[in-house]
Design a binder for these strands. Structure first.
Length: 274
DNA sequence: AAACGCGCCTGCGGGC
DNA sequence: TGCCCGCAGGCGCGTT
């Protein structure tokens, strides 16, 4: 379940190893993940090109090439992107392999196949259609109390659904939505427009803190998250409420309550959050 | 227009 | 033992 911190962890891990590497060829084991894989795009714009940098937009990883084209990858629920030696066993559900000039292989594996892999042709990444509707980056200055106030003040939706809405702010999945609402002491069931200015400021701040801390810890490994080198993250050790139904609140000891919002498990302290 | 609900997909854990 | 069921959930899209 890679959210922004996990995607950023993978990006940071891969970038130093991939910069200036040439992609010799690309092999596909499936024709479609979330969306169709257009093999001709890889022939035309990816193979025989060198990697210049890796960036991230929301939960997408972008591999930039020296012809100004880019490979856009989403890890979905269970996607992994990693570097392997040629001799390493190709694990089940490996869908794409990039063969690099130095003999290493960049492999994309995704059991649940919610992920995607597409090519933005040269110079088109700035107008990439899948990014068109995306909201602001939560760790940027564009995500600030004024912005969040504007997006919440007229909304009847629950606040948790609002901060998980990629059209408003990207990268926030279920784990970090739960955690940031805990630290800002806001009940996730509250209607967005009921938040005070003080609460909006607290939420903006706690979301940034939670995401930054999770990046520092190398992400959250619940079941299967691994970085580019197969190593787990450690932020799960610091989760205050997520997955902790009936366990004591780290602040006050009250049992953490579980409910469902928008079809997703929601955890909160009924004493601290109101 | 905003809000909500569904389907996609596989692995895993619990219950019997 | 082995099977079935429910859950995990980001995203686009259809419906209300």
């Amino acid at each position: 379940m890679p959210e922004l911190p996990e995607v950023e962890t993978i990006r940071r891990g891969l970038e130093p190893a991939l910069i200036s590497q040439k992609i010799i060829s690309t092999r596909f084991f499936v024709r479609k993940l979330r969306w169709d894989i257009v093999a001709s795009n890889f022939d035309n714009y990816v193979n025989q090109k060198s990697i210049t940098s890796l960036s991230r937009r929301g939960k997408y990883i972008i591999i930039h090439l020296d012809n100004e084209a880019a490979v856009v990858i989403h890890l979905g629920m269970s996607g992994r992107l990693g570097l392997f030696e040629q001799t390493a066993i190709v694990e089940k559900h490996t869908h794409v392999i990039f063969y690099l000039e130095n003999g290493m292989e960049l492999r994309f594996r995704d059991p649940r196949r919610f992920g995607s892999i597409e090519v933005a042709p040269p110079h088109l990444i700035s107008s990439y259609p899948r990014f068109a509707h995306l909201g602001v980056e939560p760790l940027s200055n564009n995500f600030n109390p004024q912005y969040l106030k504007k997006k919440t003040e007229k909304s009847d939706r629950g606040i948790k659904l609002v901060i998980m809405d990629a059209k408003i702010v990207v990268g926030v999945g279920n784990i970090y939505a739960n955690e940031s609402l805990f630290y800002s002491r806001i009940d996730p069931r509250r209607r967005a427009k009921s938040l005070s200015v003080k609460e909006i400021k607290a939420l903006e701040k706690s979301l940034k803190t939670v995401l930054n801390t999770a990046i520092e810890k190398g992400g959250t490994t619940l079941n299967d998250f691994r970085n580019a080198y197969g190593e787990p993250g450690f932020f799960q050790l610091e989760l205050a409420v997520y997955g902790r139904a009936d366990l004591p609140c780290p602040e006050c000891g009250t049992p953490i309550q579980k409910t469902v919002l928008g079809g997703r498990s929601t955890f909160f302290c009924p004493n601290c959050q109101n």
